[in-house]
Amino acid sequence: MANNLPLLKVEKLKRTFISPDGESNLILDIPTFKIRAGEHIGIQGNSGSGKTTFLNLLAGILNADSGSIAFDSRELTLLSESERDVLRAKSIGYIFQTFNLLQGYTALENVTLAMMFAGKPDKKYAFKLLENVGLGNRMDYKPAQLSVDQQQRVALARALANRPKIVLADEPTGNLDYRRARQAVKLIKELCIVNGASLIFVSHDLDVLDDFDTVLDFTILNRAFTS
């Protein structure tokens, strides 16, 4: 299912942040990065090396200072904000480290709401996704009634809700013990394969990334990172 055309291609991507004392810090400088459709890439990098910033730029919830992000033959940096919102709803699944879920919504509602932003909610498919992550009997639970591990699995089901082309996972296993983290990685990979989605999986813990054929060291990928 993987072909050779890149689904996502990043070039000369830069982002600076103003520190609290007014200094302008270059946080991210990625000369080039590519991922093919269906490809799974693990990214390992120290805390503070800019991994989250990178994913945020890819997801279009943060603006780049310069450079290009070509996604599915569209230039993300040239799209208007609302065009990016639509693109994100339809094509990008995002899982973050903690507090992923909307607290007032049940597991099922978290998934169907995501579907609403891309068009029509498909309850049957939402059921199926939750079953696939092993939560067939927890559909009507609110996040507070679920374990951290279960919450992450709801977030995974939600990320896949609109059959995205790519899933961005920002340390989704950070709060899990080793065994569960490994299981989570397997599940995420498996479901991305079933859905034909590319996967960028970020973790500071190299062990978790054992199952990835391609693992990039973010401290090398990101030229702005020193020490």
């Binding site: 919830i61 609302s82 007032g104």
Partner: peptide, 16 residues
């Protein structure tokens, strides 16, 4: 604030 951010990540527009 966080809930709004999550909605935005899911693809909600500012206007929404």
């Amino acid at each position: 604030r966080r809930e709004f951010a999550i909605l935005r990540v899911l693809g909600a527009k500012r206007g929404t």
